[in-house]
């Protein structure tokens, strides 16, 4: 067995019979289909990006809120502790 498959054609290939494959309208239709698909993918991708950005914003705002809450809690603890210290002194 060789590396390639070589087939010998005894007859010269002619243009006869080729016309059943020649159809520019089909090519145009397939092209329009792929263009439509590309558009759908683009719009979908756009929405995904927007969704990711919104999620990041929500995550960041929640994180900010929670860190603010813990900060204020710690500050109040410190205030209470210093007040307690002053009283005991």
């Amino acid at each position: 067995m060789g590396r390639n498959e070589i087939r010998l054609r005894r007859q010269r290939t002619t243009a006869r019979g080729i016309d059943r494959f020649r159809n520019y309208n089909t090519v145009l239709q397939r092209y329009e289909q792929t263009q439509r698909l590309k558009k759908v993918v683009k719009v979908f991708g756009f929405f995904v990006v927007i969704l990711i950005v919104i999620m990041i914003i929500i995550f960041l705002s929640r994180w900010e809120n929670s860190s603010e809450r813990t900060n204020s809690l710690e500050t109040s603890k410190v205030v209470v502790a210093t007040a307690h210290e002053k009283v005991t002194m």
Binding site: R9, I18, R20, F21, T26, V27, R30, Y31
Partner: peptide
Amino acid sequence: DRIYFYLLRQTDNEELAGDLCAQTFVNALN
């Protein structure tokens, strides 16, 4: 014609060559 025969020589299958030929032109348009 040229692209079809080029593909036919590489596939030895008229249907397949016709299909690949159409796909070639679709890709070219894209």
